[in-house]
């Protein structure tokens, strides 16, 4: 029973959503939108679960003085401060997202720079990953290296200054072999997603239920 009911719900939901895709008439037409609204509501409430888990796990870490427990203090302080400034913004301006709200100050001068810093790290990681990937160890790696050099040169003005070959060659590489491989992967992934969805709808794939 514990498994049968979720399986029946899954089957009926999946079946009706497929049917609704082809039947615009009520009550099917807006079924997907309606379920998405339900999902958004449920997701909103589950955020409380996440916050609860976050507070519990870090409070436990601080109580046990585990390795890095200082980070947990920083996290909990950050969580409380953000909630408090959000509440102040709501009380003073009617919305925490008001441009003069202290929450927006925290968002603009703390959260956004931190996000930008993490994103900027990508440049260094691309350099180190490219260095490893482009080593000409075998024929395929050499092909990758040559293709990468052509594409990179073809996409900057200096490539066109050296020769017209680079812009034309990079365009061909991107439009023909690259796009063909990408579409092949996308078709395979889409079929894989359909197959997996069907296994879930039919109750063959149950590992997510536990």
């Amino acid at each position: 029973m514990k498994r049968t009911v979720p399986l029946v719900i899954t089957f009926l939901t999946g079946f009706f959503l497929i049917v609704a895709f082809f039947i615009p008439h009520e009550p099917f037409g807006e079924l997907e939108q309606r379920l998405l609204v339900w999902f958004a509501i449920v997701s909103g409430f589950t955020m409380l679960l996440g916050v609860d888990n976050l507070i519990r796990s870090h409070a436990k870490r601080i109580a046990r003085t585990d390795t890095g427990w200082g980070h947990s203090i920083a996290l909990l302080v950050g969580l409380v401060v953000t909630v408090v400034v959000g509440a102040i913004g709501f009380a003073r301006f009617g919305s925490p997202f008001h441009m003069q709200s202290p929450f927006m100050f925290v968002y603009t001068y703390v959260i956004v720079p931190l996000q930008g810093t993490m994103f900027a790290l990508l440049a260094f990681f691309i350099a180190s990953a490219s260095y490893r990937a482009f080593r000409a160890r075998n024929t395929i790696a050499t092909l990758l290296l040559v293709s990468a050099i052509i594409v990179m040169l073809g996409r900057v003005p200096i490539g066109a200054a050296i020769s017209d070959f680079f812009p034309a060659a990079q365009e061909w590489i991107m439009d023909v072999p690259q796009l063909a491989a990408k579409r092949g992967i996308q078709i395979g992934a889409a079929l894989g997603a359909v197959s997996m969805s069907l296994r879930i709808i039919l109750g063959i794939e149950r590992s997510y239920l536990s």
Partner: peptide, 21 residues
């Protein structure tokens, strides 16, 4: 597909597209 090249370049093993399903 936009992230697969990064995984292929940086990881020991990569499940490409349908393999994950």
């Amino acid at each position: 597909t936009s992230q697969l090249p990064f995984f292929v370049a940086a990881c020991d093993y990569t499940l490409i597209g349908e393999e994950i399903f």
